[in-house]
Design a protein around this nucleic acid. Structure first.
Length: 800
RNA sequence: GCGCUUGUGGCGGAAUUGGCAGACGCGCCAGACUUAGGAUCUGGUGUCCCCGACGUGCAGGUUCAAGUCCUGUCAAGCGCACCA
């Protein structure tokens, strides 16, 4: 058969579309499989081969599941709100709606060309009214439940994008969108109280099947820490400074305290403080630093002593000075710490800089060089003297603090509440009204969606206010509670809002009365398998678990964890081995590959190039190798005749069915394809095969190269589609040959191999080997010390 | 600094979990068919002092047997980053 890929691919894509073969059905009695891939952000650049790889894994698994008779939901959509589109719109003057529609059309055509088996009836677009209505609805529910609050705090701010960013959007001190340096700015912002869910998010990890490194990264991001709170009295007042520490055992070693420059105690005791101006100057200085500058100064600590204020160490009653320094942050713990120079690295650096004595309280290190944070015998420690472990000392100290009513056990998380508003146009309007009489009032549910007004100018204001603030007709409204004039919130939600629940909408995407029906949710949830990028592990994956868990708590979804299983694909690097990027000019466009080699070759190559979870560079020569493979597959048509089995190939086929079936489940697509290549080599060596065998081969190939598989399936005279044909099954008994080649070693060195009957007993195998004429030369003049035999593997005769 | 991951031919990568290292593909070499070949087919291809020895970043160790387990070490990548 001639392999005319462009004709074949068009033909079958049209056929699949016309028949709607990939549409999940509402027959809820069938066993289901819900495979989810991260829906793309429809950027102007179009898709690159990395997108194709991200979808190809579950594409193969979903296709296999369909052939196995499952009702498969394998949906796609577009996460279309966000800054790149808005920035492009500002630059070109084209409305973001128009830009988004163009980009979605482009992405859709690219995805269809590759032949993905997505359910195109269930496409969601987060920017459409009937979608974001429910994003706002969920937000309203959170507002009702007290998970939304407004506070003025130091926040991450991107001066280039002119927006407030969440902690998750500021990883590495860089803006997630434009990679500019983040600055800290005091702002009044909306928060989602995700920290209230920290423990639930942590515990939920125990029952899901995520790759270990994904779990670990989430655990680290949540960053649960067990320690103690303690109150240090402020000398001469009834007040106290509250600190958080994980090392309350070292409290006897506290020689000073440090608080964050923004700590409210400074303002409170302004009258007593004699160097207030110096403190203010330091605070201003700190605010100017970017995140990057702060981390560059790790060893070189700065700070100012608060003159006129002192604290009392509750452990020993000694008076100690208080400093402000930017190594203590307002956002973690209480914004105040007790400093133990000998046994904490940062306190050690600070003490060195400010000339404090460093006194050893725990033996074991050399505190003239560095802080010692390990276990050791306690000295100079009052009632803790002689104790050898932190654990024991912490318990004793907690009991002591409790007795004196100055402290107690406490838990802290690294994760911070989610700064949720963005001062931009292209996002979901936050459904809140500000009323002078009633405060913040939620927009009534029946008024949702709160529509994003059409504006002429989408650029943010210089003062950092949202473009919506300029639309009087949007801003001015009446309070839903008291009916008096009020003003709407003009900020919008962050890009992550829409993607936090999209997998729920796929279950029932056209529902006008609910985000999805209970029946649909009961049937489809949880997502059986979710694959996506590692970069989303501490962003989207945390956020969406949080939203889902919230919906579970208020009874809106039937399961507590949304994703039963999560895997991740590795990057495709450019041909030069670097990360693909427009600026390096090493981006591979899937359209070019499809034009030149066909969609099937693209699909096979992407999965063959290496371990699915690892990064691998693009190599066009290797693409050609995959083309050769499919050419050889097409060539099988001219070799096949008759029915039944070919004696020489029977066991090879059973072995291949088994290996391909199991490898797909393990996402070991590269070895699955390698196995098919080996089989085709064997078939060519054999010189012929039957039509039945070719039918098995193309069904195994179908998830990888569905167009060619369909074409051959049709030429074999089958009426239905290969895509819907039954997945082949193997017979374990037929995967075993009658003989097996074992390795023969003498004293652990391989000497030769020998063919013996399969499952020969250990003793018989040794006897057979010893009887082999080739053995004589190795045994002559030697004594046998030991004989080792592993059935079907190896015989090792140890001689001396 | 802390955490995680990975080091195997000229290249991408296999190796049933302690049992013949280098499957499969690329590249390369030789040959065949061709006016021609970035086409196709056949054979070969870890290294070397090539009847033998050496080989999975490096150095040790355990074992009859180590890419796989243990100890140390080096390198690269990813993540977090003054988290008290």
């Amino acid at each position: 058969m001639k392999y005319d890929f462009s004709a074949i691919e068009k033909k079958w894509q049209d056929k699949w579309d016309a028949d709607g073969v990939f549409n999940a059905t509402e027959d809820y009695s069938k066993p289901k499989f819900y495979g989810l891939v991260e829906f793309p952000y429809p950027s102007g650049a179009g898709m690159h081969v990395g997108h194709i790889k991200a979808y190809s894994g579950l594409e193969v698994i979903s296709r296999k599941r369909r052939m196995q008779g499952y009702n498969v939901l394998f949906p796609i959509g577009f996460d279309a709100y966000g800054l790149p589109t808005e920035n492009y719109a500002i630059k070109t003057g084209i409305h973001p709606r128009q830009v988004t529609d163009n980009n979605i059309a482009k992405f859709t055509s690219q995805l269809k060309r590759v032949g993905f088996s997505f359910d195109w009836n269930r496409v969601v677009d987060t920017t459409e009214e009937d979608y974001y209505k429910w994003t706002q609805w969920i937000f309203r529910k959170m507002f009702d439940e007290g998970l939304v609050f407004r506070a003025t705090t130091l926040v991450n701010y991107c001066p280039s994008c002119k927006v407030v960013l969440s902690n998750e959007d500021s990883q590495g001190g860089k803006c997630d969108i434009c990679h500019s340096d983040i600055i800290q700015k005091s702002k009044d912002v909306w928060y989602l109280r995700i920290t209230e869910y920290a423990d639930k998010l942590l515990q939920g990890l125990d029952k899901v099947d995520y790759l270990p490194n994904i779990k670990l990264q989430q655990e680290n991001w949540i960053g649960r820490s067990e320690g103690a709170f303690a109150n240090f009295a402020i000398a001469g007042t009834d007040d106290s400074l509250r600190i958080y520490t994980t090392r309350c055992d070292t409290m006897f070693g506290v020689t000073f305290m440090v608080i964050a420059p923004e700590h409210p105690i400074i303002e409170k005791y302004r009258d007593r403080i004699t160097n207030f101006d110096a403190l203010e100057a330091y605070k201003t200085e700190c605010a100017k630093k970017t995140e990057f500058e702060r981390t560059q100064l790790v060893k070189d600590k700065t700070g100012v002593r608060i003159e006129g204020l002192a604290a009392i160490n509750p452990a020993n009653g000694k008076e100690i000075p208080i400093y402000i320094s930017d190594y203590v942050m307002m956002g973690y713990g209480t914004g105040a710490i007790m400093a133990v120079p000998a046994h904490d690295e940062r306190d050690f650096d600070f003490a060195k800089k400010f000339g404090f004595d460093i006194i050893e309280f725990i033996k074991g290190g050399d505190i003239s060089k560095e802080a010692y944070t390990g276990d050791g015998e306690m000295v100079n420690y009052d009632f803790l003297n002689g104790i050898k472990t932190k654990k024991e000392a912490i318990e004793k100290m907690l009991a002591y603090l409790g007795e004196k009513c100055v402290g107690e056990k406490g838990i802290q998380y690294k994760m911070k509440d989610w700064a949720f508003n963005r001062q931009r146009y292209w996002g979901e309007p936050i459904p809140i009204v500000h009323c002078d009489h009633c405060g913040m009032v939620g927009v009534p549910y029946e008024e949702l969606p709160l529509r994003l007004p059409n504006v002429e100018n989408f650029a943010p204001g210089e003062g950092g206010e949202s473009p919506l603030a300029k639309i009087d007709s949007f801003v001015n409204c009446t309070c839903p509670k008291c009916g008096k004039p009020a003003k709407r919130e003009t900020d919008t939600m962050p890009q992550w809002a829409g993607s936090s629940w999209y997998f729920l909408r796929y279950c029932d995407p056209h529902n006008a009365d609910a985000f999805a029906s209970k029946e649909a949710l009961n049937y489809w949830l949880p997502v059986d398998w979710y694959n996506g990028g590692m970069e989303h592990v501490t962003r989207h994956l945390i956020y969406s678990r949080f939203w889902h868990r919230f919906l579970y708590d208020i009874g809106e979804v039937p399961v507590d964890e949304p994703y039963a299983k999560r895997t991740a694909q590795g990057l495709i690097l450019g041909p030069d081995g670097d990360k693909m990027s427009k600026s390096k000019g090493n981006v591979v466009d899937p359209n070019d590959v499809v034009d030149k080699f066909g969609a099937d070759v693209l699909r096979v190559y992407i999965l063959f190039m290496g371990d699915y979870a690892s990064a691998a560079p693009w190599n066009e020569d290797s693409v050609r190798g995959c083309k050769r493979f499919l050419d050889r597959v097409a060539g099988l048509c001219d070799m096949a005749s008759g029915n039944g089995v070919t004696a020489k190939l029977e066991s090879a086929f059973h072995k291949t069915i088994k290996k391909v079936s199991l490898d797909i489940e393990d996402m070991k697509f590269n070895t699955a394809i390698a196995t098919l290549m080996s089989l085709i080599n064997e078939i060519y060596d054999c010189g012929s095969l039957t039509n039945d065998e070719l039918g098995i081969f193309v069904r195994l190939l179908c998830p990888f190269a569905p167009h060619l598989a369909e074409e051959i399936w049709e030429t074999l005279g089958n009426k239905g589609l290969c895509t819907l044909a039954a997945w082949p099954e193997w017979d374990d008994a037929k995967t075993v040959d009658s003989t097996v080649e074992i390795a023969v070693q003498v004293s652990g060195k391989l000497k030769f191999t020998k063919e013996i009957p399969v499952d020969t007993s250990k003793d018989d195998a040794i006897a057979l080997v010893k009887a082999d004429e080739r053995m004589a030369q190795y045994l002559e003049g030697k004594t046998i010390v030991k004989e080792i035999s592993v059935p079907n593997k190896i015989v090792n005769i140890v001689v001396r």
